[in-house]
């Protein structure tokens, strides 16, 4: 009996010991995995405000988490001091002149701190040293940057509206085109005409695609709306095409007016493409393609401007004056 009890005690003892050992092992493994026991060093930085920072916020280097915010303090002189606790094994990668700034993974999302390597030709940054904090462009600034893009899209819309009105005007010279059409197009091959038709048809397709893409990405809703209107205006031009196929060019006295319209249209598309390239890198290709097609039309019109058929050249606009900032004078009395 005594032996049986002793056996049971031994078994229970082993059971308890193994259980406790397993718990300790798990704790050790988790600790090692989460760098709980890893050697760390401290760095400081002083942002203008502690807003956007919180304890435990990740600090990244080249996209890898190398530490976290340990503490935020408001010092007696009113300045904010933030203590970073970083893993010692990354210490040799950080050099003097390293800077820290807030970054956002996407347009919207959690902000993390990103530290730069600094000047690799200089010494490794010392522990407990203060880093320079740099502010990155905030969402507010990004939104401010979107504003001109929206304005440009509206400008594009206005120009298209003017062009559409003029083209649809029954007294427009353009509407009276006709008799010379065949004589003038002798040098064109059928293949070239086919290519032109396909290229120009893509304007509509591209603008529709661009609008859809913007809607899906929820970026610049107003811009998307403007482009939707633009597409609608282009679609309104379709009925005119049927009449034109019956009529044709009679005279093009107002060619300079058309040239300026197409010029403006082209510039507007350039601007929209450029603005978009900064907002959504994958979308501007569509706008750019439309622009290239319009550029072809513009090029043809410009060469036409010098043609004897339409007599004379319009005076070019002083380009420098339009792209030079006006003086900012201080006129306070």
């Amino acid at each position: 009996m005594g032996e049986f009890v002793a056996n049971v005690r031994r078994q229970v003892g082993w059971f308890l010991l193994l259980g406790m050992g397993a718990i300790v092992l798990i704790l050790l493994a988790v600790g090692l995995q989460s760098d709980l026991f890893a050697s760390k060093f401290k760095l400081y930085f002083s942002p203008p405000s502690a807003t956007s920072f919180y304890d435990g916020q990740a600090v990244k280097f080249q996209g890898f988490i190398i530490g976290r915010i340990k503490e935020r303090e408001l010092q007696q002189d009113g300045r904010v001091r933030i203590t970073l606790s970083l893993l010692e094994r990354y210490h040799p990668m950080l050099h003097q002149e390293a800077v820290i700034h807030l970054v956002r993974d996407g347009l919207i999302g959690e902000q993390t701190l990103e530290i730069t390597a600094g000047n690799t030709e200089k010494q490794v940054i010392a522990a407990e040293q203060s880093l320079t904090y740099e502010t990155a462009a905030s969402i507010e600034q990004l939104l401010q940057d979107i504003k001109p893009a929206v304005e440009n899209a509206n400008h594009l819309l206005r120009e298209l509206a003017v062009l559409a009105t003029w083209l649809n005007d029954p007294s427009s010279d353009f509407r009276q085109m006709g008799t010379r059409f065949n004589a003038l197009s002798q040098d064109l091959t059928r293949e070239n005409v086919g290519k032109l038709v396909i290229n120009l048809a893509e304007i509509l397709e591209n603008l529709q695609g661009l609008t859809q893409g913007l809607k899906e990405s929820h970026v610049g809703e107003q811009l998307a709306k403007s482009l939707q209107y633009t597409t609608d205006i282009l679609a309104d031009l379709r009925p005119l095409t049927q009449q034109l196929s019956r009529e044709g060019p009679e005279s093009l006295k107002r060619i300079n007016s058309l040239i300026s319209h197409v010029d403006l249209l082209s510039k507007s598309l350039d601007t929209v493409a450029s603005d978009l390239s900064e907002l959504t890198p994958e979308l501007p290709g569509l706008a750019r393609e439309s622009r290239v097609t319009i550029a072809e039309m513009q090029q043809l019109l410009k060469s036409l401007q010098n043609n004897w058929l339409f007599g004379g050249q319009s005076k070019p606009v002083g380009d420098d004056e339009q792209s030079v900032a006006p003086p900012v004078l201080e006129m306070q009395p």
Binding site: S185, I203, R238, T241, E296, M297, L301
Partner: peptide
Amino acid sequence: VFRAGLLPALLLVSLLGACGGSHKLS
């Protein structure tokens, strides 16, 4: 697609003709 592109195409064709067809497109 063809209907949508017909207007600018007609314009281009007529203008290209006016240039004597010697113009390089792009």
